[in-house]
């Protein structure tokens, strides 16, 4: 999923300070799972913003809505009935959600309330780790199911570098060396020989080097 973290309150407050009526929009998908921008976080942020404005002796009108999915125009359409009563929109979705709203409601300013972080998996409750960089040309089939693009600090396709020690990356003792993991996994699978095959220089076009990426499924488009 896409992971996110709430922005510092100070930054959020700066964005919305000129406005009296805020439409605070959460999203029921990824940001709900990583507890950054779901219904619950929308409520908490609204409360904090209320406390802030009351302290300053003013009231703001915060309307809380959590959409099923903010990155889909169909769901973003649901804001139509609320939009006229808002001076600004504060979105707690990932960057995709923020932009979907901005594109639909061009006359209202939209501000992000979270920083979108990475595509990650849940390691344990409350801990999310980066697992994919969306390079558009998945290598997991030849790297034992461990991604060197996302998990090696240097994105080396022919690792490990000389900086690994005890299976850890040189950048921090709590970061696993992706290539040590790959090697262990290849060994366990009896695929050691694969290690000596040189992985050729990566074509970065599918990774975004060719400009903004797009998927067109003609069988699905109307």
């Amino acid at each position: 999923m896409i992971t996110a973290e709430q922005k510092p309150l100070k930054e959020i407050i700066e964005y919305i300070s000129p406005y009296d009526r805020i439409l605070l929009v959460g999203c029921n998908e990824c940001v709900t799972v990583c507890a950054a921008g779901g219904r619950k976080e929308v409520g908490l942020l609204a409360s904090a913003l209320n406390l802030h404005s009351l302290k300053q002796g003013r009231t703001i009108d915060i309307k809380e809505i959590t959409l099923e999915r903010q990155c889909d125009p169909e769901y973003v359409e649901e804001l139509v009935s609320e939009i006229d009563r808002a001076d600004a929109i504060l979105s707690m979705a990932c960057g995709c959600g923020v932009q979907t709203i901005a594109e639909r409601y061009k006359e209202k300013p939209v501000f992000p309330a979270v920083n979108t972080k990475f595509m990650g998996a849940s390691q344990s409750q409350g801990i999310w780790v980066e697992r994919c960089q969306g390079c558009g040309d998945c290598l997991l089939g030849i790297t034992g199911g461990i991604c060197p693009v996302a998990r090696c600090s240097k994105h080396l396709l022919n690792g490990p570098c000389g900086g690994t020690s005890d299976g850890k990356c040189e950048i921090a003792p709590d970061v696993d060396c992706a290539w040590c993991l790959i090697w262990e996994r290849l060994k366990a699978l009896g695929m050691e020989k694969r290690y000596e095959e040189i992985m050729e220089a990566k074509d970065f076009r599918p990774a975004g080097g060719g400009g903004p990426r797009k998927i067109i499924r003609e069988d699905l488009s109307l």
Binding site: K40, G43, L44, S47, A48, N50, L51, L54
Partner: peptide, 11 residues
């Protein structure tokens, strides 16, 4: 007790 309950009390 969730954070929101405490926040609402303050509100």
């Amino acid at each position: 007790v969730d954070a929101i309950h405490i926040m609402k009390a303050f509100e």
